[in-house]
Design a protein around this nucleic acid. Structure first.
Ligand SMILES: [Zn+2]
Ligand SMILES: [Zn+2]
Ligand SMILES: [Zn+2]
Ligand SMILES: [Zn+2]
Lengths: 135, 135
DNA sequence: CTTATAAATGTTATATTATTACATAGTGTT
DNA sequence: AACACTATGTAATAATATAACATTTATAAG
């Protein structure tokens, strides 16, 4: 009873798993060098090891990069497995980041046509405001 | 016949003007150190001088930062004077960036409510795809 | 099992992007 | 003049990310 193709597609390498676990259990977005510091005890010693794992995890949709913060959070939206269409809200006071999972929003953006009639399946949207706690 | 308040609000300091002019006449987004290199002949010698001018220009809406590229473009959308609600399309091949000016889109996003009913007047949206030339 | 291929890792050095800290100078207002 | 505010100059350093090269591990095919 081996590993099925589907399982394998989602299986992570050692470094990827270590870094994903750290991000996934974090309550806030983590920066690359914060990650590095926290996984050094597990044998990951160099920035490049972190960045390579991050690149892969982003590529397969397990995590997303918050571009305006240079930080990474785990995806908690199963429909993001393809990972190319993301939306977040960011609190400007406490920096809490929440992934937005709105069928209406993703449908609107996926169907949006620019003035040349071009549609885009990939996008990243970051909303800024105050979270419940901070307002 | 002095400078009116409105004029003054929009008047740029020396460094701000030099850097805005460079960005404004560029056909592509410029990075901070590219800007630095190009304004050294005008006496701007240090990164901080560039970053300070960029911060101010972003704040007053004369330029926008393309977060996924760490680069800056001039605003060509007069309604962005307040500069907090921006949308761009980015070509993944040639890196051409175009500011999107769509009343429908900005209205949709400004009125979007997250699952807590929260609305956001500030946002940044980056669409990724292929420009006309590259597809 | 062997060979080939692709993916991941380890390591060092370096490039790129951005900020801290402190001193000085200009601008507008009262 | 006195004050507040904005902008500038300069040096040092912090934070973020990649290049280059050697090696190892996983996967697939023959
Ligand atoms: Zn997601
Ligand atoms: Zn908050
Ligand atoms: Zn604009
Ligand atoms: Zn293009």
């Amino acid at each position: 009873m081996g590993i099925s193709k589907i399982d394998k597609m989602h299986s992570l390498s050692k470094n990827q798993q270590i870094i994903f676990d750290l991000i996934d259990k974090s309550s806030e977005p983590l920066k690359a060098y914060t990650i590095l510091f926290n996984v050094q005890k597990k044998g990951i010693k160099a920035p490049l090891q972190v960045y390579r794992a991050l690149d892969k995890l982003v590529e397969i949709g397990k995590i997303h990069k918050i571009e305006s913060r240079n930080a990474f959070i785990a995806c908690h939206n199963s429909s993001c497995q393809v990972a190319k269409a993301t939306a977040f809200s960011i609190c400007e006071i406490c920096e809490k980041v929440t992934e937005i999972s709105s069928a209406g929003l993703s449908k609107y953006l996926a169907n949006f046509k620019d003035k040349d009639g071009m549609k885009y399946s990939k996008y990243n949207l970051e909303f800024f405001g105050l979270c419940k706690k901070c307002r």
